[in-house]
Simulated scan of single mutants.
Amino acid sequence: MDARIETVVTTGKTTLDDTEYDVENNTYIVGDDDEVIVIDPGFGSEDVLKQVGDREIMAVICTDGNEHHLASALEVAAAGEEDEENWAPVALHRADRLLWRDYFGRLAREEEDEDDAKALRSLEPDIWLEDGGVFEIGDAQLEIMHTPGNTPGSVSIISEQVGVLFSGDTLHRGRPGSIGGAYEDLRKQLNSIGALLTPLPKDLRVLPGQGEETTVGEEDARWESWGALATERDE
């Protein structure tokens, strides 16, 4: 098995519904000695690129369109290349296009140079993720699973070859994923988690967007109890 996983943890601030939160973000680098895919580049492009080293970045995958996953996406995709044609493609699910546009629109409003502001407003992801889509890196395949709830376009990524589920902010250890305990659509998120976990091997590793890793079995055993969270929110 040539493909391996490396983790970089960065911290920063993200704004959600006009509230600022401190967020710790897990970035995953999947690949071999020559090529990698970066999942959720987070806040620290320098830390991520240092870990990547001389390897070529084949794609940057954002598991949702929230700020803490987009903040370093372009810097990591560029990897020091001035010519945009040499940048790695950035991938996002189309259902999070509004979050993308909100984020880069905000950057555009803060930009003094009008040409740079126009460029930011016109930015789009290079790849629109689709349920069942597959990326290949080294001897591993990364299959995209659409898991809406945390955001409309949240995705999780399964790789049987490296024995891992990258759950993004759909699922964290011991709870549904969230920023500051806030949920966009918890019922939909719980449905996504249940559908995601049920068919998977119980010993499969789960690497979340924040916090420590867990397993499918551990979270599947907890899943039903989380329904109380949705009931509390309805009340």
Score class of each variant (00 low, 15 high):
Leu171Gln: 02
Ser156Asn: 09
Pro201Leu: 00
Arg205Asn: 01
Leu196His: 03
Leu197His: 14
Arg187Tyr: 13
Asp169Cys: 12
Ser156Cys: 13
Leu196Ile: 04
Gly153Trp: 03
Asp169Tyr: 14
Leu165Thr: 13
Arg187Gln: 13
Ala195Thr: 08
Leu171Trp: 08
Thr170Arg: 12
Arg205Cys: 01
Arg187Val: 09
His172Lys: 12
Ile157Asn: 06
Val206Ile: 14
Arg175Ser: 09
Gly153Ser: 12
Glu160Trp: 02
Ala140Asn: 02
Ile193Gln: 10
Ser178Cys: 05
Lys188Tyr: 06
Ala195Cys: 11
Pro152Thr: 11
Gly149Arg: 15
Pro148Phe: 15
Gly181Met: 09
Gly181Cys: 08
Gly153Ile: 07
Glu184His: 15
Ile158Val: 15
Asp139Leu: 05
Ile144Phe: 02
Thr147Ile: 02
Gly163Trp: 14
Gly149Cys: 13
Asn191His: 12
Pro152Lys: 08
Ile179Glu: 06
Pro148Tyr: 15
Gly168Phe: 00
Ile144Gln: 05
Ile193Met: 07
Leu197Cys: 13
Val162Thr: 04
Gly163Ser: 09
Asp203Cys: 06
Leu186His: 13
Arg173Glu: 00
Leu165Pro: 04
Tyr183Gln: 07
Glu184Val: 14
Met145Phe: 01
Thr151Cys: 07
Gly194Lys: 09
His146Asn: 03
Lys202Phe: 08
Glu160Cys: 00
Met145Trp: 01
Leu190Gln: 13
Ile137Met: 06
Gly177His: 08
Gly174Leu: 00
Glu136Tyr: 02
Ser167Leu: 02
Gly177Cys: 07
Gly163Asn: 10
Thr170Lys: 10
Gln161Leu: 04
Arg187Lys: 15
Asp185Trp: 03
Gln141Gly: 11
Thr170Phe: 05
Pro148Gln: 08
Asp169Ser: 07
Ser156Leu: 01
Ile144Asn: 02
Leu186Asp: 06
Asp139Thr: 03
Gly163Arg: 07
Arg173Leu: 06
Leu197Pro: 03
Glu136Ile: 04
Leu186Thr: 10
Asp185Thr: 06
